[in-house]
Simulated assay, not measured.
Amino acid sequence: DKTVESSTTYLYVDGELVAQDDVGVMAPHQTNTEFFEYTWRLSGKEDEIKVVADGDNSVDEENEDNNEKIEYVTATQTGQPDLVIADIFIGGDHVYYRIQNTGEATANTSTTTLTINGEIVATNTEEEIPPGEMLTRSFTYTWTPLAENETRIVTVTADAANTVDESDENNNQRTETFAETGTPSTATGDIDLVILDIFLSGNQINYRIQNLGSEQVMSSTTYIYVNDELVGVDQVGVMAGGQTNTEGFDYPWQSLREGDIIKIVADGPNNIQETDELNNEKTYIVS
């Protein structure tokens, strides 16, 4: 019989708190229709949905035992999955790839293969991938430095065993060519690479890199991490002493959540002997 100034409703899916909703003033006996900002994953399995009024127990109520309601829901899928390889990159002695389900349904367990110069050298098993989700993974395969004038043709194939019924069966492969250019991979002298700032625009993670030293660096490799997971590598060209470059890396950062951490590391593989080896990193917290 009293007005409630405000309250917070909690949403749980299979026992995990996934969203909250702030409810405004409610007069006695008033009924509101509210909703949660939450992206539903269509798993095809039965899920427990629990909604709890006054989830943080901040309202002193006459009855504290009737705030919950539980429903069991089975969400059925429409459409089909579609697995694609969004990127291939080398990090240290590992071959990395990004696999994405661009379809409208969950992709069941599948197999991804790594082929180098026509020979399959490694295989991964992928767990279920929901619609829209992208994963960065690496193969159990040791990548060795390219010899002089060597070229390697690297192909990664999603759903290599063709066990997933997809909306497009012709876009599972991605091929990249890695070649030794003859440019020295190491450098010494008065060189000092730093990341000045990080910013997001379009579908790219962008950053500004500067050579604080006085000597030219022929090339360098930047590593991009999300929540301490290596998600990409960016090759930076010649930089004179004092030069600043603005670089960009294709990545669907819109899928990141508040609090996720992007870290960019200049000279990620530590190939360059710098005057200061402790200032190569910069982080950005998604807000």
Rank of each mutant, 00 (worst) to 15 (best):
N227A: 01
Q216G: 03
Q235H: 11
A75L: 10
V95I: 14
T246V: 08
K263A: 01
R208K: 10
E104G: 04
I272K: 08
L114E: 02
E274I: 05
Y97W: 07
N170H: 07
S110V: 10
T3F: 00
A147N: 13
D250Q: 08
V84A: 08
E68I: 14
E37H: 12
K2S: 12
D234R: 05
T163V: 04
V164M: 07
N170M: 07
F139I: 09
D260F: 00
H94D: 15
E104M: 15
Y141A: 02
N108M: 15
D56F: 09
G237E: 05
V4L: 03
P252V: 06
S220V: 02
V51N: 00
E61V: 10
G79W: 02
D250I: 14
I99N: 11
D82S: 05
F249L: 03
I195L: 00
A161H: 10
E215Y: 04
T76Y: 10
G242P: 00
E64S: 13
E46A: 07
I224F: 01
I116F: 06
I264G: 01
E119P: 09
A158V: 05
D65A: 12
Q100V: 13
V25K: 15
S7G: 09
N63K: 15
T115N: 14
T115Q: 06
W253N: 04
P130A: 04
I191Q: 03
N171H: 06
L42Q: 07
G55R: 06
S255N: 06
L193A: 01
A266E: 02
A19Y: 06
V238T: 12
K45L: 11
N172L: 00
Y72M: 06
Y10V: 13
D1K: 04
D267F: 08
G248M: 03
T112N: 11
I90P: 09
T221P: 01
P145F: 06
I272M: 02
V73H: 02
T102G: 05
T136H: 07
E71H: 03
R98W: 08
N32Q: 07
R137V: 01
S167A: 11
I264R: 03
A147I: 11
G182R: 02
G248E: 06
I261S: 08
I191W: 05
G15D: 02
G182D: 04
P269S: 13
P184G: 08
D192T: 11
G241R: 00
V164F: 00
V84I: 15
T102C: 10
T140L: 14
E48C: 10
I205T: 09
D190Y: 01
N32R: 03
L11P: 13
R98H: 10
E37D: 15
F89I: 04
V236S: 04
E150Y: 04
W40D: 10
T33E: 13
Y97G: 05
E150G: 10
T142V: 08
E274F: 07
A105K: 14
Q254H: 05
N66Y: 04
N227F: 04
D260T: 12
Q100G: 07
G103W: 10
L196C: 09
